[in-house]
Design a protein around this nucleic acid. Structure first.
Lengths: 312, 312
DNA sequence: CACGTCCATACCAACAGGTTATAGAGGCTT
DNA sequence: AAGCCTCTATAACCTGTTGGTATGGACGTG
């Protein structure tokens, strides 16, 4: 009997949601597809897992047993994939680091340079992830560490160490009436349309919509984007405004987009994040140390002209 | 990233066998199919698992990591399926018992009757398995317990308690020159063609070919069968002879087949077998106890005329 | 030098897994 | 009571994947 872990995930979703329709929405598949897959799982096992009714699906005894075993199975699968990918990058002397947008801002170069000095022969591979993956591949073992902005989902299962904190600003279309103001209070922006991250990013999306500072009123969504460039495009097009870290003014300057300070919203922090399994990985720990060093003590600055071989 | 456990099994087979061709034979798939699946696994993971060479496939670092994690993954999968099926049968008040041919002979009825008395409301479901599955479904969690003849493969991972031991006889076509003899020494049979179990049953097949009593000379195989009826048919047709437990003369009497005592081969034992996970399962343990009782103290014998309704 | 072994590729048939559209059964509201 | 909403099941269809056989090319061996 062979089992596709996808079927187990489907099963778990239906069990948790208590119905095919809701689970299908969560899994981003159609409800008939789920119907078929669940039946296939049942006939494959030769066991009824759910009792169907007009109001949803309830677990049978057998279903409860499977629901109990499923997390362990999926965890074992996850561990296997993570270990494999990690071993591959270790063998190639590559440390893969995920990030979403500007990573650790100006400190990023220092971190990488410091790591290069501490681990000669090793290379840092910076992997930019889409916003729909807020842990930048850390959750899938796609990277060994990540530079993320807080908050991020799944923070409980990961180690994080805050590196720097900066104020948030607002990114406005150049033609926006408030674009000329020196300072804007967030309450003036609450009813503006916002350019937001995809809905499935949950808390992270809420944070950048400043849901906490809205007093319960829902935000207006003018556009949904998944990448920095589409985000800038949407703002420049006037589809909406957006909050952004102060450093975005430097890293994401674009014609048609202006950044202005905002009061009344919490600042944004960047953290270096790694999975607990890497607590004992000397390479990852070296990287964490380099992050600390790069933001803590600027240490010895390279002479003007920057790092690298002398020109000519 | 979703993974089909089939791919992991494929991978494990290739890793163990050290080559696609050999692994393909073991998995009963074609070599090109394996080639494709392994490549699919590699591209899906984005990792090279093997280094190809003219003389086979060698694991990379990443491959070694996966090979290390695979057993745990497969075990978790196995456990999940076993628990689910077991829960289903428990909920239905059914104890599934696998067996291959005559189970525990005449004691079988007593065992089932005793279990019915000990666990009112429960039902024993006897599942006959093909010889190609020498643990009668125990390995797949298809049954909670089994009545098997020793030796059986995978005995190390299972609990077994011998119930009875009986001499082996030889089953001959009625027209066979030796069919009239009262007693036959196995050495007289060594060069006869034998009706054998499928090759994949390994030690079990060897045992019924009396490989140990052949002094290293390979047996002649006259036919391969997977089920009792095909076995009897093959013998009656004169394709070969076969060893069989004494009780086969009673349970598998057929025109055209005669059974004769044989000297020089080890006797055959029947055991009740269960997985270690069922050590604490009260229902399985009750069944084991019933097995013990049924063969230990013959208890009250049925009156002459045998069990069952009186002839009309 | 012929041969066997091993992995890779090409091509084809069957199926699995997804989609949209639709049916049918209950419960809730008006 | 009628209408509407929600839930699952089914039908029809399309595509990608898994399997098969046949074959090619590389390398070591008798």
């Amino acid at each position: 009997m062979d089992v596709d872990t996808r079927l187990v995930r489907y099963f778990a979703a239906v069990a948790e949601e208590g119905g095919l329709t809701r689970a299908a929405r969560r899994l981003f598949v159609s409800q008939p597809a789920l119907t078929k897959q669940i039946r296939r799982l049942e006939t494959g096992l030769g066991v009824e897992l759910f009792t169907r009714s007009r109001s949803g699906m309830a677990l049978t005894e057998a279903g409860r047993a499977l629901a109990e075993q499923a997390p362990e199975l999926l965890a074992a699968c996850d561990r296997a994939l993570r270990e494999t990918k990690s071993a591959a990058s270790r063998a190639a002397r590559v440390l893969r680091v995920g990030f979403l947008a500007s990573a650790a801002n100006e400190a990023t170069q220092d971190i990488i340079a410091g790591f290069g000095r501490r681990r000669p022969g090793w290379r840092v591979e910076m992997r930019q992830a889409a916003w729909s993956d807020p842990t930048a591949g850390l959750a899938d073992g796609e990277v060994e560490a990540a530079l993320l902005r807080l908050p991020f989902p799944g923070a409980g299962a990961l180690r994080a160490e805050v590196l720097l904190t900066e104020e948030r600003q607002v990114a406005l279309p150049a033609a926006h009436p408030l674009a000329g103001r020196d300072r804007i209070d967030f309450r003036e922006l609450r009813d503006e349309p916002f350019v937001a991250a995809p809905a499935e990013t949950g808390r992270w999306r809420d944070y950048w919509l400043a849901a906490d500072e809205r007093g319960g009123r829902p935000p207006r969504i003018g556009a949904v984007t998944d990448q920095p460039d589409a985000w800038l495009q949407a703002i420049a097009n006037g589809y909406g405004i957006a909050l952004a870290p102060e450093s975005a003014a430097r890293f994401y300057a674009r014609p048609g987009v202006v950044y202005r300070p905002v009061t009344g919203v919490a600042p944004s922090s960047v953290a270096v994040v790694w999975p607990p399994a890497a607590d004992t990985d000397p390479v990852v720990q070296d990287f964490v140390r380099c992050c600390r060093d790069a933001v803590g003590g600027p240490a010895e600055e390279d002479p003007p002209g920057g790092p690298g071989p002398a020109p000519g």
